[in-house]
Write a protein that binds this DNA or RNA. Structure first.
Lengths: 238, 238, 238, 238
DNA sequence: AATGAATGAGCATTCATTCAT
DNA sequence: AATGAATGAATGCTCATTCAT
């Protein structure tokens, strides 16, 4: 950035960087009863089941996501489920990969609006919580995945980590990041991923009951960015 | 680093700071069949059930922790379980608080060996993974707690956060931490907590199957400390 | 009695008034395996479960009526039970209402064959025991209901009492019943209901083990009718 | 009675025949902790268990009468139970015989205050409900006995029946009872026993919740006596 | 004799999956 | 391909009874 005295997050003109954020689109499922061709109908039922599963897991957790609940919400018979998915575990395993990709796409889009690495990280950070707000089920799906869809979670983690490492590698190349070897970027990536997960506490703690995500307070973003930029000892701040 | 004498983590004589770490004691349950006196016997059975539960959750997750499995491993009849715990959920709810306290005690002990804030954080960080190695079940118990023992998890999080915030507050007072308002320390606390969770990947990924924790590589600790100290931009490193 | 020709119960040609009784139909459940169509099949399984439950309660009491026993006797899997009834208590609660209605219908039909109030009572009395013979489980179902299906029993009692009171009210109106206020008919109703229950001892005491009801001896009916008609002091008999 | 036109129960001077009733003594158990000799102590514990069982059955029914509940209420350890009774069924089987004898003794005492058969029956009738009021557990113990203590119940029934038959036989001998053969008295006995059971509805229905018996209304007694004396057709009343 | 913890058979209920229609 | 009832293994929990102290 131009001057160390103007931090990304507390610059006057950066007050509401969230205005820059694209609007995350809510998932909308068309009613399969109006479908025309057989293929179309089948496709829509599949989508209805998938969305129903996401909602049910969001509301009752993976454990409470029974086939009965999922099919009821999708408006199909229990047996129909097995025409579209191998097993209960099968659909649970697909939840995070598909939704995770959506999340990554959106967050990446947000991030690309910024010009410097730190600005991009801030936008990605904000984008993540904006996505959470638009997809209130995602947080629980992500949170419980280690227990209930371990492989999917592992894959998701690696996907995000790799994206982060590519992102950080560019920072290393441009000199924005200093003092790290390439290998060490993985550590940074994990720290930032962990941060997003734990700072979710600020997004949900205010939320009443529904898990309807709240916006994350601006000062949290500010503090996070400060930490990422300067560390705790804050050398170079003055 | 400019000077080895200032570097906490990569100073030659600091190569193995883990040598300083106290040895975490492994839980060992005496066979209750040799107990004398009813009280002693009862106490041992209780402990056997608790340990068995921790092991079973570590191996099969909270979900797979059936009473059958727990009592079989403890070597008692199913009904005996209910003489010591109210319900299945009861014991699951006690797992994290009890083990979490053990962990905090041990990590605190480690941390106190250091003199500077950053040294203490490094020792605490290493201590955390040393504890994980001695208690291979703890990681899964902690990880899955949000899904299966949400209240216990929330309490644990708050306990750790509060400890962290007291720790950081001292750094603020001594001037070791700069550029943060007191309120913002909560963000730092969560980032560091999230880091420990996610960097656990380096400790478990090598572990074959048993979840037998591995040591966390030194370079990971180094990178983490660097990040905490200077942030990504590494100002003041040169 | 003044004249044998007027006596309902001990008139020579009335010796076998039971000949007048309609034949109570035994419950017969068709094998559901031969059913055509899903609806029919489902209906038959439901009936099989209901009948099995009645038989099991008749044989082992409400307390011994486990789902295992009921489904085994019905020839279906345990889980099937819960496709047809909410819970174990649900089916137990339905036993008396359904069978009680059958009983009341049959007894009412019997009673209506008579012309005078006392004749009708005798026919109803005989009909009750004929029903018991055809439905050997009913007695125990009725007897244990206060303990195990209290609401159903209360409802049954009230149903029978109300029927009785309407019946007796007509007697009051025609002058066949003398010396009672309308309100007092409830007492008479309960006495007659209690009588049927306790006089069941004559019907079952001979029955070996199965509770296979026996016919109630004629002299018991005679004595009962005498008591109802004239009371103990038998005024007007001479 | 002085005059047949003045029935027992509604004669002015008979308004409160219950005043004549002896006062039923409530069961009182001495605290066994104050016992002196070993025998005395044992005897008191036995009594405490018995009383506790009666209370528990009265409150929770035979089914809910667990050893835990009984011993807790008696203030002894679970194991102690088996030093005094063979099994759970054993104590349940003793409940009705012992309490039934108490009831019979008291009711007999009441009955003997009267001079005519019908007066005695009325006094016994009233005495029965006075006993119920003093021993609120007895009704449930009696009611559920057919299901849970069938042998004890059968014995009780026979005991009461035999008493009744002796009572009625005297009426036959004195000429107070007319028109019945000796054998037929059994029918009358059962009718009167059934009446007491069913007319209990008038005693409990008003009782709110505790099963604390209420007095049976006078008009019920009146109607009952009328029915027993004259039957339904009431010949000889005018 | 009293204690109270250990025992384990037994129960109602759930739910992923199958399969005849 | 959709249906929805049937299946039966698995689970948490209760409680009468036993027995070492």
């Amino acid at each position: 950035m131009a001057s160390p005295t103007r931090s990304t997050s507390d610059a006057p003109r950066g007050r509401k960087p969230s205005r820059k954020l694209p609007v995350p689109e809510k998932t909308k499922v068309k009613d399969w009863r109006n479908a025309e061709g057989r293929n179309e109908r089948s496709r829509l039922i599949h989508a209805a089941l998938f969305t129903a599963a996401a909602e049910v897991v969001g509301a009752h957790g993976y454990e409470g996501a029974s086939i009965t609940l999922i099919t009821q919400r999708a408006g199909v018979a229990q047996g129909t489920f097995y025409n579209h998915f191998e097993s209960r575990q099968d659909i649970l395993d697909q939840l995070l990969p598909r939704l995770g990709k959506e999340m990554l796409d959106y967050v990446g889009e947000c991030s690309r609006q910024g010009s410097t690495l730190l600005e991009r990280e801030e936008l990605g950070f904000r984008g993540f919580y904006a996505f959470l707000k638009a997809h209130p089920h995602f947080f629980r799906i992500l949170n419980e995945a280690p227990s209930f869809a371990p492989k999917a979670h592992q894959a998701h983690i690696e996907l995000v980590r790799d994206g982060y490492m590519r992102f950080l590698k560019r920072g290393l190349d441009t000199g924005e990041i200093k003092g790290f070897e390439e290998k060490e970027l993985e550590v940074a990536a994990f720290v930032m991923m962990g941060a997003r997960l734990y700072l979710g506490h600020f997004a949900t703690q205010a939320g009443k009951n529904d898990g309807d995500g709240q916006d994350i307070p601006d000062w949290v973003t500010t503090a996070y960015c400060k930490l990422i930029r300067h560390g705790l000892t804050g050398a170079g701040q003055g």
